[in-house]
């Protein structure tokens, strides 16, 4: 861990801002992952096929 801490500390100007930003981003990222993996397979299949559906219907 020391090596990580050392490198973080020696970034010039590292202050609270990047930390807050990173934490914010991380929370959004984790929430999104949890959300997307909670969607059931059938729904995912339906959603991803939306652009292809109209092709079948309109016989393009």
């Amino acid at each position: 861990m020391d090596i990580i801490q050392h490198h973080l500390e020696t970034i010039p100007g590292i202050s609270i801002y990047p930390v807050i930003s990173f934490v914010l981003f991380f929370i959004v990222f984790v929430v999104m992952i949890i959300h997307t993996f909670s969607i059931d397979k059938k729904t995912i299949h339906e959603m991803k096929n939306i652009p292809l559906e109209e092709m079948e219907e309109n016989n393009q």
């Binding site: 959004v28 990222f29 999104m32 995912i44 991803k48 092709m55």
Partner: peptide
Amino acid sequence: LPKAANRPVYSYRLSIIHFWALIFI
């Protein structure tokens, strides 16, 4: 791309995560 390849996008889950992460960052 899905239209031209006539197959759905590889991962819809990835597209959701990718969307929010991209516009946030």
